[in-house]
Design a protein around this nucleic acid. Sequence first.
DNA 1: CCAAAAGTGTTCTCGATACACCCATGG
DNA 2: CCATGGGTGTATCGAGAACACTTTTGG
Lengths: 231, 231
Amino acid sequence: MQLNYYQREDQVLLAVDCIIFGFDKKNLKVLLIKRNFEPEKGKWSLIGGFLKKNENLDEAAARVLETLTGLNDIYLEQLHTYSKIDRDPGQRTISVAYYALINVDSHQFDGIQIDSAKWFKLKEAPDLIFDHNEMVEKAMARLRRKAMTKPIGFELLPEKFTMRQLQNLYESILGKKLDKRNFINKINSLDVLIKLDEKDMTVSKKGAYLYVFDKDKYEKKVEEEGFSFKL
Amino acid sequence: MQLNYYQREDQVLLAVDCIIFGFDKKNLKVLLIKRNFEPEKGKWSLIGGFLKKNENLDEAAARVLETLTGLNDIYLEQLHTYSKIDRDPGQRTISVAYYALINVDSHQFDGIQIDSAKWFKLKEAPDLIFDHNEMVEKAMARLRRKAMTKPIGFELLPEKFTMRQLQNLYESILGKKLDKRNFINKINSLDVLIKLDEKDMTVSKKGAYLYVFDKDKYEKKVEEEGFSFKL
DNA sequence: CCAAAAGTGTTCTCGATACACCCATGG
DNA sequence: CCATGGGTGTATCGAGAACACTTTTGG
């Protein structure tokens, strides 16, 4: 077996950075971490780390996320690869950005680094190191696009949720108000929610019915009919 | 100034691979190259090369493309980054895929390697090395998606083209027949084409009017109205 | 009893689709 | 004169958007 055909080529450091979106009843949030090493120590950044020789990028992203926050079994999707020459002043580094949607309540931080990771409302997030602001922007654009064609939002909600919460979520993602009746009609016509007998009494006196996402039904629809929708 | 903060991290080779789509009157094509070095010497592959220390990925993709085919000033868009551990048996290599659309007629190959690069009809393309087939698949999916919302096809056509050619192109990309009248109505309603007095007499006895894409008008529309369409 | 949120249908408009015939001309 | 591709308009349907009032109950 022959190795090292490409010996004369330059090698580089490959990083992964994770944009983790969460939704907490009312606001879309992003998970950030305070950097505890140079350069830019003490500043806020995305959750990141370096690719190792024995893993692919998807695995690296999952490992980095779990190591820093304890979050595991999260579906991460590759976003874009950033390669500006001076993006990291410490050393030439190329970074592959990943993003994920998680439900804040049902994923507790049991990881070792819980102290340094913190949720920020998107609009109140601090300035980030390097090109991380740009990454968040792009992830947000991607999220918006996906939200308009896939029922993506359910990953961000607790298992049981009210129509109002779902609508709030979509309004956060799309950045605009939606008509309540049209929204509910649209969602109902998709026929992928199960209405429970249970009500959420924490917000109004009347109480609001809780729903759960019927994932099996959704997946069957995707196969059979090529599910799609527009908001 | 301090350097090398990350000394203990693994370094890797970073490659770029370019999926170049072209359209030649009737068929959607992809540009491939016969590999003249190991491993997999003699097999067909995408146009690829390695990132150098003094350039970013966009620049690397443009340089590789120009070096191997003479094509320059091509707009390349980043597609996805591939990182399976054994994707390149020669050495651990991560590859960033780029794709571009070009008009076959107006971009001649004046490059040094003209002999080894060849256009293939998409359906007749040979098996490619490594994960290059997967890359082409993904690029094609992206192309289809973009074609449905952006007037992307004009980059693949000669400056002057007939409605029939435009329709052929969209049918190739979307992989289905479209209704002639509906297609023309839709395109006309976009109001971004200029109808010339000139006719193309090469196909029919009657001749078909030629059109040109009004790029300025299109860009003004994008700014002012947020241009969008559906096919 | 009233404030605050929940729940519920109809109408209108516009874009998408389906569809068929005449025209011009080179051979 | 006819085969071949070019060019044109209308009717129908369905999805999206606009829109307002009644219900419930904790305080």
